[in-house]
Amino acid sequence: MSRGTASTPATLALTAAGIPYTVHAYAHDPRAAAYGLEAAAELGVDPARVFKTLIAELDGGLVVGIVPVADRLDLKALAAALGGKRAELADPRLAERRTGYVVGGISPLGQRQPLPTVLDETAILCESIFVSGGRRGLDLELAPDDLVAVTGARYAPIAR
Rank of each mutant, 00 (worst) to 15 (best):
A41I: 00
V102H: 08
R154G: 12
G44R: 01
E88P: 00
L12H: 09
L125C: 07
A156I: 11
T5I: 07
R86S: 13
R93H: 05
H28E: 07
E42S: 13
A90N: 10
L37E: 11
T22R: 15
L78K: 09
Y155T: 11
L140F: 02
R3W: 05
K85Q: 14
L125E: 14
A17G: 07
A6G: 06
L147C: 08
L62A: 09
T151G: 03
L37W: 00
E42T: 03
L73K: 01
A80M: 06
D74W: 05
R98H: 12
P157G: 13
G133I: 11
E141F: 07
G105T: 10
V148P: 03
P47A: 04
A48N: 07
V131I: 14
D120H: 07
A40L: 01
E88H: 14
R31W: 03
L62S: 08
E42P: 00
R112N: 15
A39I: 00
P157E: 11
L94R: 15
A13E: 13
E42K: 15
S2Q: 13
P114Q: 10
L125R: 14
P108S: 10
R154S: 15
M1I: 05
L37N: 06
T53H: 01
V50P: 02
R154D: 06
R135Q: 14
A77I: 11
R72Q: 15
R93E: 13
A39Q: 01
A153V: 08
L119D: 00
G105M: 09
G152H: 04
K52M: 06
G65C: 04
V150F: 01
R112L: 15
V45E: 10
D146Q: 00
V118E: 05
L12Y: 02
V45T: 05
L58P: 00
P9R: 07
S107N: 07
R3K: 11
D120C: 12
A95Q: 10
K52H: 06
L140Q: 03
D74V: 07
S2P: 06
L109R: 12
P9W: 09
V118N: 03
A80E: 14
V23W: 06
D71G: 02
E96F: 04
Y35R: 01
S128D: 11
K85D: 15
S128H: 14
V148Q: 06
T122K: 05
A39S: 12
R154N: 02
G134I: 12
K85A: 14
L140M: 04
L140C: 04
A10F: 07
A48Y: 01
P68I: 09
I124L: 13
Y101I: 09
I158K: 01
L147M: 05
